[in-house]
Amino acid sequence: MELDVRAALEKLARRLGGEGAKLTEAGRLSGGASMETWAFAFEAPGGAERLILRRRSAPFDEETARSVSLATEAKLIQATGANGARVPQVRHVCDEADGLGEAYVMVRVDGETLGKKIVSDPRFDAVRPGLARQCGESLVAIHRTPPPPGLNLKAVDGTAELDRYEEVYRATRAERPILELAFQYLRKHVPAPVEPVLLHGDFRNGNIMFDPQAGVAAILDWELAHIGDPAEDMGWICTNSWRFGRPDRPVGGFGEYEDLLAGYASAGGRRIELSRVRFWQMLGSLRWGVMCLTMYLSWRDGITKSVERPMIGRRVSETEADLVVLLEEGL
């Protein structure tokens, strides 16, 4: 049965704001198939609060099999925030008494997350040239955070990631020559190992809240956090599928490689070669292509029924169009 989230939020408002608390707003924001995000607010004798609820609404499927629990996500946000990363403030981690399932509550941060707006809305014209540098700086605070103990985060390097996605690709039984060639090419170009760090794991335009004056306001969506090569987080934000129609600006559709790397170095991050970022960028396109295939399969196999899924399957060709150019250019 569909959970009555609104009723649960009324109860939660009283838990957070005291007996007199009254829910003044509750609405679901656009979210994924397995994760819900709700904006809500309450007024209470002690003051009003504007909050965000993040809750898992469906059991794990392939798409989310790599993800951490929401409780882990909340711990990572707190740990990286304490280390200087720009992240939302965790207000409350839900338990059974809240009746919301796996969920936590954050203080709402104002700004824009729609990638298309960041790359093209005139409101961001003034800050846009500085965003790639800010993204580089922001990553340092994350990568320098010691992983909180007891979280059991997965550790991944280039070879392990290729193994994982090739296994998933083989299981789909799809035959796509460009994906095959990308696997072969990347296997020959795996960068030398580096000391692994805490990664956001889904650091891309769309998962970052930007403010039209201040730029990076908060880094969101921590469910794919893991341990690995710092260049992985940099390569993912450079993957063309997240440039929103501006392939000429490699970082998120808003900035240049040099600025991302310079921001990282200036904040005290270790020096990272561009070719290393490009390896992860190319692996990012390949990974997104394989993910698109699995989303189609989740529909074909009857796991999900949404029309969204088979259409995402038709996005494999966008990654092929990108990969073939990257294969021509080399890393």
């Binding site: 020559p177 460009i178 501006r246 392939p247 396109s285 038709r314 060709s317 966008e318 169009a321 150019v325």
Partner: peptide, 17 residues
Amino acid sequence: IARNQIAIDQPSYKPEG
């Protein structure tokens, strides 16, 4: 092949490059 396929699947997509 990739160009022809993207023209069917997503003609507004601007590939790398």
